[in-house]
């Protein structure tokens, strides 16, 4: 389900998010990706017994994995994973990811699913900076 596509508004799927929330997520993902040149992807669903491994497998399935950052949130298991690829790991070191993860868990503890995700994406985008300033 890609929010950017044209949806039949009369048949909004019974997903976890309202159209307004979907719009917020779509905007956050697209803006973050556009500002940084990094492909941010979001996965909301089960991560299973080995969440880190599952998240890394999901990241491997992305089209541009090396330049991607996956944010995987499992509300049922109360677990989130941030996975960076080869290029993005240089721009987003683990401590930047840890900062974003911490901010997200604070919001998520309070039940603010969409707000937590949006703030996490914004923090990651801020930490990643613009493409021209990236250290290669």
């Amino acid at each position: 389900m890609v929010p950017g596509e044209d949806e039949d508004r009369s048949a909004v799927p019974a997903g976890p998010f309202t159209p307004k929330q979907l719009a917020r997520l779509d905007e956050a993902l697209t803006l973050s990706s556009r500002e940084t040149g990094v492909q941010f992807s979001l996965y909301v669903g089960a991560l299973g017994a080995t969440p880190r491994r599952t998240a890394e497998d999901l990241h491997a399935g992305l089209g541009a994995a090396a330049n991607s950052v996956l944010v995987a949130v499992s509300p049922g298991e109360r677990r989130l994973e941030i996975v960076t690829g080869e290029q993005t790991a240089k721009r987003l070191p683990d401590r930047s990811c840890a900062l974003a993860a911490l901010s997200m868990t604070s919001s998520l503890t309070g039940g603010d699913l969409v707000g937590g995700i949006v703030n996490g994406l914004r923090m990651l985008a801020d930490q990643a900076g613009k493409p021209a300033l990236a250290h290669h």
Partner: peptide, 28 residues
């Protein structure tokens, strides 16, 4: 309307190249 290719399902076969280089985890 294109989307990056995604392998179906969350469990690709063994031997898939590892693309993850870092990141973080969190629980709440």
């Amino acid at each position: 309307h294109s989307a990056p290719e995604l392998t179906g399902g969350a469990a690709p076969a063994e031997g898939v190249r590892r693309t993850a280089r870092g990141g973080a985890s969190g629980t709440w």
